[in-house]
Amino acid sequence: MGSRFAEAADALRDDLIAVRRELHAAVEVGLELPKTQRIILRELDGLGLEITRGTALSSVTAVLRGGRPGPVVLLRGDMDGLPLTESTGLPFAAASAAMHACGHDLHIAGLLGAVRLLAARRDELPGTIAFMFQPGEEGYAGGRLMIDEGVLDAAGEKPVAAYAVHVDSATPFGQLVTREGAMMASASALRLTLHGTGGHAAFPQLAIDPVPVAAQLILAVQTFAARRLPATDQAVISITRLSSDSEASNVLASTVSMEANIRTLSMATLDTVRTELPTLLTGIAAANGCRLDAEFIASYPVTYNDPAETREVLAVLEELVGVERVTRLPEPSMASEDFSYVLQEVPGALVFVGAMTAAGPVPMHAEHTVFDDAVLPLQASVLAELAWRRLIRG
Rank of each mutant, 00 (worst) to 15 (best):
Phe224Ile: 00
Leu176Cys: 03
Thr232Met: 14
Ser169Asp: 05
Ala260Asp: 07
His195Thr: 11
Leu217Tyr: 12
Cys290Ser: 04
Leu265Glu: 09
Val167Pro: 12
Ile239Asn: 14
Met183Glu: 05
Gln222Pro: 01
Gly283Leu: 13
Arg263Lys: 02
Ala182Leu: 05
Thr264Ile: 03
Ala201Ser: 13
Gly199Tyr: 01
Pro230His: 07
Arg274His: 14
Arg179Glu: 01
Leu229Glu: 02
Ala235Asn: 03
Ile239Ala: 11
Leu206Ser: 11
Leu176Glu: 02
Val177Trp: 12
Ala260Cys: 14
Val167Ile: 08
Ser238Gln: 08
Ser257Trp: 09
Arg274Pro: 04
His200Ser: 03
Gly196Asp: 08
Leu190His: 07
Thr223Tyr: 10
Ile218Val: 15
Ala253Pro: 07
Asp245Arg: 09
Asn288Trp: 11
Gln205Trp: 15
Ala260Met: 13
Leu277Tyr: 02
Leu194Trp: 08
Asp245Thr: 07
Ser243Thr: 13
Ala164Asn: 01
Gly174Gln: 07
Ala207Phe: 08
Ala189His: 13
Leu242Ile: 13
Pro172Arg: 03
Ala170Cys: 06
Ala189Val: 05
Glu259Asp: 10
Ser188Ile: 06
Thr193Asn: 11
Ser188Pro: 00
Arg241Lys: 15
Leu190Arg: 06
Glu247Ile: 11
Leu280Tyr: 02
Ile237Tyr: 06
Ser188Glu: 10
Asp168Asn: 15
Leu176Thr: 03
Arg291Thr: 12
Glu180Trp: 05
Val251Gln: 11
Leu190Cys: 09
Leu229Trp: 00
Glu180Lys: 10
Ala201Cys: 01
Gln234Pro: 13
Pro204Ala: 02
Leu206Gln: 14
Pro210Leu: 12
Ala248Met: 07
Asp233Arg: 10
Pro278Tyr: 12
Glu259Trp: 00
His166Gly: 00
Gly198Leu: 07
Pro210Asn: 07
Ser246Glu: 07
His200Arg: 10
Val213Thr: 03
Ser244Phe: 06
Thr193Tyr: 07
Val177Asp: 12
Ala286Tyr: 11
Ser257Tyr: 12
Ala187Gly: 02
Val213Met: 09
Asp233Val: 13
Arg228Leu: 04
Gly181Met: 03
Val167Lys: 00
Glu180Ile: 04
Arg263Pro: 06
Glu180Thr: 14
Glu276Cys: 01
Met258Gln: 09
Ala187His: 07
Arg291Leu: 08
Ser243His: 12
Thr275Lys: 15
Ser244His: 08
Pro212Ile: 01
Arg227His: 07
Ala185Ile: 04
Arg191Pro: 02
Ala185Asn: 05
Gly181Pro: 04
Leu206Cys: 03
Ala170Ser: 15
Arg274Tyr: 12
Leu242Trp: 14
His166Lys: 08
Val236Ala: 10
Thr269Ser: 07
Ser243Gly: 15
Cys290Gly: 03
Arg241Leu: 15
Arg291Phe: 02
Ala235Ser: 06
Thr255Ser: 10
Arg179Cys: 04
Asn250Met: 00
Leu270His: 13
Met267Leu: 15
Thr223Val: 03
Arg263Cys: 10
Arg263Met: 09
Pro204His: 04
Met267Val: 14
Ala201His: 05
Thr178Val: 01
Thr279Cys: 09
Thr193Ile: 14
Val213Lys: 10
Asp209Ala: 08
Ala226Leu: 06
Ile284Pro: 04
Pro210Met: 09
Ala170Asp: 14
Leu229Pro: 04
Gly289Glu: 04
Gln205Ala: 15
Asn250Arg: 05
Thr223Ile: 02
Asp271Asn: 15
Thr264Arg: 06
Leu252His: 01
